[in-house]
Simulated assay, not measured.
Amino acid sequence: MEVFQRVKNRIPRGELWISGEIFKGLALEIKQESLITLNKILDADMCFFSYSSPLQNIPVGSGEMSLLIEKARASGLICGVTVDGPFERLVRDYGFMEVIKWFHRPGRLVELLKKNAALAAAELRAADNAGADLLILCDDIAYNRGLYFSPENFRSLLLPLYRELRNYIRDHKPVGFHSDGNIESVIDDLIDGGFSIFSLEPEAMDLGKICRRLPGDAFILSGIKAAWLMEPDPNNSKDSEIVAYISDLKQGCRLILASACGLYDLQSLERLKRIYRLVESC
């Protein structure tokens, strides 16, 4: 994709989600503009904003997103915007167990999914118009062993909405998909639906296997395991594992180096910096 041609001589890198605790620890203001400063500290290539970030909500019609993207671009960053999908919005409003019950009486579920898809569409259109380089639809639809519902439910209830959301965006602009858990059973559906960047959990999926199923212009936005950021490792015993895993992924597909879990605290931030240094020559 043309947008990633700006990154020369290394794997592009950037995090979808960064906790406010990190901003507190670095004495940065807890607002989305501080993501620009933090990504420059990290020497990242990409910065991800959101209209509904826990750091700071941004009204869709305010023009603030355009200003953020302009400032990030001036700092040399590729700009992405993440947008929550219809399932994730429902779970946030009604609770996971309640929403799952509705899959057995889909009349109400269809109505509510369409309503929340319309909210996601408004954010996607606004982010596109604000000048985002890429967009990521985030819908946590799975756990480590598979989808929360059947693939048939996915294809009948969610996939048509995802296709509509993708079609709101101009064809030249890359649109990605993020979910926690194992979504292997519907990867091909998402590819056919026009998604070309996949933020996936390394712990839940065999990313090497997934790479072999992706078309040549698709990207994996992943490669950093949660354990590398969170588990104590005073002897740096995982260094060779980290380098080998990321090198193999890079050989198998187009890779944007990122975690799926995000950064929670200053320790994970320092671990991420170390991973960046380890794989600088990959």
Score class of each variant (00 low, 15 high):
Y51A: 08
R274N: 09
L159C: 13
R92P: 01
A226T: 11
N235S: 15
F198E: 05
C47P: 03
V81F: 03
A132V: 10
V7I: 15
Q267G: 11
Q5E: 14
L266V: 04
Q56W: 00
P59A: 08
S259C: 05
E184G: 11
A44F: 04
L16C: 09
I58S: 00
P160W: 05
D217K: 14
I242P: 00
Y148S: 11
R125S: 13
S281H: 10
K225R: 15
G61V: 12
A118E: 12
C253D: 09
M1C: 13
L147D: 08
R125Y: 08
A126R: 07
P54I: 05
V3K: 10
Y51L: 01
S185T: 15
E88H: 01
S53H: 01
L255I: 14
I41N: 06
A127N: 06
R13Q: 07
S237W: 14
R89W: 04
F198P: 02
I69P: 00
E241K: 11
Q32I: 02
I41M: 09
G63Y: 13
F195S: 03
D84V: 03
N182Q: 12
S268H: 07
D180G: 11
A218K: 08
R212N: 12
D192S: 15
S50H: 01
M46C: 13
K71W: 03
P54T: 07
L134C: 13
A117K: 00
L35T: 02
D248Q: 11
